[in-house]
């Protein structure tokens, strides 16, 4: 389907972006007032013993010029060494895996719910047989976008945990504990997605090919599910890719309320404590996730709409630029 060259070039681009993000983060953190290692060592709440502090200083070679430190970090990174947390001296890789183990199941469930919700809302808003139902469904994304996640979190905790006692607000009870935070995350993410989907479906439903299909006597359910949905969901796909990144790293508030220590909480804590190696690791993970999901989305995009590939073959122009334009367009649509 795709030329290997195309995929290889996209991957090379992604790696370059990851490198730039990593470098920017590294230098930005060192622009912050105070040496992060010294700041950390002098933290009065968790003071590190002199020996540990000396060990950390030596490990990060803080007396060396900045660019030497940068390449030191980069070299270690390439060997898979993420370094040690400045807060508790644990290997960053260990902390990151603990956070990911908390976050991935939640993000996965939230993602599935987001897609389900968004399609349900959009299909209702565009194809429901009754006008008031369509109008009602169209209002849902607005409500969803304008409801702060902490508010929804608290309402769910108060009702389902404190009042009904169906799930513990403090203990991790496995899958059961994922449901409320996943609903919160999905409600937030589904808003923008369903709005874009509604526009996409409306636009696709108005295309001439629909008239042709109707004329050919194709049943309307097949027109909607087989043709309109395929054509109308392309813009939403790109947005969905961005949503994945948000679900992984942007759930600080939801994690706080639901007492989870995932990637969002971890991000918050490491920024608060200026735990540089940990922040770098998180930025790296989030960048990799964003870019890989975007890559997959771009490839899927082409699969859903072969014209993109044809265009690609004809011009050899990088499609990223076009997609970038699309994302911008989508954002403008959402804002409008």
């Amino acid at each position: 389907m795709f030329s290997l060259r195309y995929v290889a070039r996209r991957m090379a681009q992604s790696i370059l972006v990851i490198f730039i993000v990593y470098a920017l983060t590294f230098f930005a953190l060192f622009v912050l007032p105070g040496d992060p290692v010294d700041n950390k060592i002098n933290n009065p709440v968790s003071p590190l013993p002199q020996e540990t502090a000396d060990g950390l200083r030596a490990y990060y070679q803080v007396d060396q010029p900045l660019y030497v430190q940068f390449f030191l970090h980069l070299g270690r990174l390439l060997r898979g060494d993420l370094g040690f947390s400045l807060t508790n001296g644990k290997p960053v890789s260990e902390l990151v895996s603990q956070a990911l183990a908390q976050t991935l199941p939640l993000a996965g469930l939230a993602f599935a719910l987001t897609v389900l919700l968004a399609f349900a809302i959009a299909l209702t808003a565009v194809f429901a047989p009754v006008a008031w139902l369509r109008e009602l469904a169209k209002a849902v994304p607005v409500v969803s976008i304008s409801t702060p996640s902490f508010l929804l979190s608290y309402v769910l905790v108060v009702v389902f945990s404190f009042r009904l006692g169906w799930v513990s607000s403090i203990q991790d009870e496995g899958f059961k504990s994922l449901i409320l935070p996943a609903i919160t995350l999905a409600c937030g993410a589904a808003g923008a997605l369903s709005q874009v989907l509604i526009r996409g479906l409306q636009k696709a439903a108005g295309e001439p090919f629909v008239t042709v299909l109707v004329a050919k006597g194709v049943p309307s359910s097949r027109i909607v599910l087989g043709h309109v949905l395929k054509n109308g969901s392309i813009p939403a796909l790109t947005l969905l890719a961005l949503t994945v990144g948000e679900l992984l790293a942007g759930s600080v508030i939801v994690e706080t309320v639901f007492n989870r220590t995932g990637l969002g909480y971890f991000t918050y804590a490491s920024v608060r404590d200026q735990d540089t190696p940990t922040i770098e690791a998180i930025v790296l993970i989030v960048a990799v996730v964003y870019l890989s999901v975007n890559l997959v989305a771009d490839l899927l995009y082409a699969a859903l709409d072969p014209r993109i590939l044809a265009h690609e073959a004809a011009t050899r122009a990088p499609s990223k630029r076009r997609l970038g334009g699309r994302i911008k367009g989508i954002k403008e649509e959402v804002a409008a």
């Binding site: 009042r163 513990s168 706080t256």
Partner: peptide, 21 residues
């Protein structure tokens, strides 16, 4: 003793008021 760090003030209070802690 099941010792659970719960940073959020409202959740911590609610968990005791609702009998979960």
């Amino acid at each position: 003793i099941v010792w659970i760090p719960t940073e959020d003030d409202a959740v911590r209070l609610g968990s005791v008021q609702s009998g979960q802690a």
